[in-house]
């Protein structure tokens, strides 16, 4: 019994005789069969990754020619899958622009239209449901989010004694999510938008753990997006359909805002609670808010320096 590990039979040596072979072969075959069986679910893996996609470099290392090829490839893939030819491009930041948003908590009535407009604009997965904006129904008299209600499902809003606080990516100037990413798959653009390269993200979800605003979403399965709901106006760093296993987030609708338009959440807001613009332009509406309203940011003590401001006005 004391010999489980000690070898004894060094006598038969490396040469295997015929009987041994006959005895051992079925065992080996059975092991291979068991291994193949264990791996058999992989037959459902579906579309495999092309060598080109596998070897694709980081966004910042792609030459203009590389980018052209990548965009063409993704355009074809989207068209094949959703039967819509997307207008996909790499929209780059504008010079002299830094974005910020402000949200008027006195106006917001918690109708959640921004949540759904965002999903429609940005081609998020409908199942499992991925939403970038979470609206909290807060009892008046507190800022403790633990007392907020996320899934209020009432006949009518606003309800007495409550205010409503939409939270999304705060586009921090000092973003903890960017700091922790082990592969620089997420970074801050010159215009302040924190972007993700969906083709570089390894899906470790460290950024999700680091974000103090619960603003990041992970594609736990392949995103389900009905073909008829696809928004074909797409940018590489924002609302193109995402692959399984990567993280995504609000990008201030960069496919719109970098072309001078307003983000979708702002345009749908029925009460006009949102203000958006370029903080480097002293005459912009957002600069006006920062100068004239008593704004605050969420979790200021963490030093994240959000570019997303909240304010109350009577």
């Amino acid at each position: 019994m004391a010999d489980l590990i000690t070898t004894r039979q060094t006598a038969d040596g490396p040469d295997m005789n015929r009987r041994d072979f006959l005895k051992k072969t079925p065992v080996a075959v059975a092991w291979v069969a068991a291994l193949a069986g264990a791996l058999s679910p992989l037959r459902n893996l579906g579309d495999t990754i092309s060598a080109e996609e596998f070897l694709q470099s980081h966004y910042k290392e792609l030459s203009p020619d590389d980018m052209k090829r990548v965009l063409a490839r993704i355009t074809d893939e989207v068209e094949r899958e959703y039967r819509v030819r997307p207008h996909l491009r790499d929209v780059t930041p504008m010079d002299g622009v830094q974005f910020a948003m402000a949200l008027n908590l006195t106006r917001c009535i918690g109708c959640r239209k921004c949540v759904h407009a965002c999903v429609e604009e940005n081609n998020q997965s409908r199942s499992p449901e991925i939403q970038y904006i979470r609206v909290l129904e807060m009892p008046q008299g507190t800022m403790d989010m633990e007392r907020g209600n996320h899934d209020y499902d009432v006949e009518q809003v606003p309800r007495d004694g409550h205010f409503y606080m939409p939270v999304q990516c705060q586009q921090c100037e000092n973003p903890p999510c960017v700091k922790v990413c082990p592969v620089e798959a997420t970074w801050q653009e010159p215009d302040g938008i924190v972007a993700v390269d969906y083709n570089w993200c390894i899906g470790c979800r460290y950024c999700e753990a680091a974000c103090p605003y619960w603003a990041r979403r992970f594609n736990f399965s392949k995103p389900e997006l009905p073909a008829e709901d696809v928004n074909p106006d797409m940018a590489y760093l924002s609302n193109r359909p995402r692959p399984k296993g990567v993280v995504e987030k609000c990008t201030f609708c960069l496919q719109r805002t970098r072309e001078g338009r307003y983000p979708a959440c702002l345009e749908v807001c029925p009460t006009g609670s949102r203000v958006f613009g370029n903080v480097l332009d002293p005459d912009s509406s957002i600069s006006y808010i920062l100068k004239n309203k008593r704004v605050f940011v969420l979790k200021e003590e963490l030093g994240t320096r959000p570019r997303f401001y909240y304010f109350f006005d009577s």
Binding site: I109, G110, C111, R112, K113, V115, H116, S127, P128, E129, I130, Q131, R134, H150, D151, Y152, D153, V154, E155, Q156, V157, P158, R217, F218, N219, F220, S221, P270, T271
Partner: peptide
């Protein structure tokens, strides 16, 4: 004054956010 309105659907925590 704004009239109350019906809010859009609440997030589906059971199916959403990767939850299964």
């Amino acid at each position: 004054a704004f009239k109350p309105m019906t809010p859009a659907p609440a997030p589906d925590e059971r199916r959403g956010s990767g939850g299964n």
